[in-house]
């Protein structure tokens, strides 16, 4: 079943087309990798999908519902949450309260159930020891996990992770990958944007590649990595011999 579908989405800023006629779909329980050089339009596409921008043309469906032009909080309640590339925790609140906001408002829960849900999510992403610290005072890798936790707590069945692993060390990345697999196994679908190839190749069921705002390739990780256009646009000559295990 399709959880998210984009049909010919375009976004123009004046004369600049940041996203051009991009179509893709995400099946439930799937992890879709999205790659592309800087400025390829990934973040703009995400912002269209979650409702921060209204796309110039095209349609977006979340769980079968047309969400084109809807406000972000509505899209979130229909089932799509995003972690931001620029981390924005509510710095005056504790980690627990940050996640609680997601559960209360995104999940439309009452105080009691929301607290219970928050505890579960915090357990899931391994934030227990930080739960009662102010989110302004925790280190970057923990903030990344907090973003993830807040998105999960909204109860959305689709998560968009915009460079959620940037700045993590290899050990932390391994931990994060474990968490992502756990999340997927709990029945959610994910879109993962990353620059770290190991992450995208290792975890994605399918990959789409953007360049200059257009989709230039789509397929299994090994197909994409051997695709001529992709190698030219993004990976460069050196990686053409890369073998994916």
């Amino acid at each position: 079943m399709t959880s998210l579908e984009c049909k010919k989405v375009s976004m123009k800023f004046g004369a600049l087309a940041a996203v051009q006629m991009v179509s893709f779909s995400l099946n439930s329980g799937e992890i879709l990798g999205m790659i592309g050089p800087n400025g390829a339009g990934k973040t703009t596409l995400f912002n269209c999908v979650i409702g921060v921008y209204r796309p110039t043309s095209g349609k977006i469906y979340v769980n079968g519902i047309d969400v084109t032009g809807m406000k972000p909080h509505k899209v979130c309640r229909i089932g799509l949450a995003k972690t931001s590339q620029i981390m924005e925790p509510f710095t005056g609140m504790t980690v627990f309260e940050n996640v609680l906001v997601g559960a209360l408002h995104g999940g439309r829960m009452k105080m009691g159930p929301a607290s219970y849900k928050t505890e579960q999510v915090i357990e899931l992403v391994g934030l227990n020891e930080y739960a009662y610290k102010l989110s302004g005072s925790i280190p970057v890798p923990v903030r990344r996990r907090l973003e993830l936790a807040r998105a999960i707590a909204t109860g959305a069945n689709i998560l968009l992770l915009d460079e959620n692993m940037a700045g993590l060390n290899p050990h932390e990345i391994d931990e994060a990958l474990e968490i992502l697999k756990k999340i997927r196994d709990s029945g959610k679908s994910l879109i993962v944007v990353e620059h770290i190839m190991r992450v995208v190749m290792g975890i994605s069921d399918r990959i789409i590649v953007l360049n200059y705002g257009s989709k230039i390739a789509e397929g299994l990780p090994e197909e994409v990595v051997n695709n001529e256009a992709v190698i030219k646009a993004y990976l460069g000559e050196k990686l053409s011999s890369l073998k994916v295990a």
């Binding site: 979650i50 921060v52 406000k71 972000p72 909080h73 979130c76 309640r77 949450a81 995003k82 931001s84 924005e88 925790p89 509510f90 710095t91 005056g92 609140m93 309260e97 609680l100 906001v101 997601g102 209360l104 408002h105 995104g106 999940g107 439309r108 009452k110 105080m111 929301a114 807040r150 998105a151 909204t154």
Partner: peptide, 26 residues
């Protein structure tokens, strides 16, 4: 102590993050 209060505080700290976390900011 309420859901409403958390919405207000979230708006104060980071409005766009509040919005994508499902807070009806308006």
């Amino acid at each position: 102590h309420s859901k409403f209060g958390y919405a207000l505080k979230a708006i104060k700290e980071a409005e766009s993050a509040a919005e994508i976390s499902g807070v009806n900011t308006t």
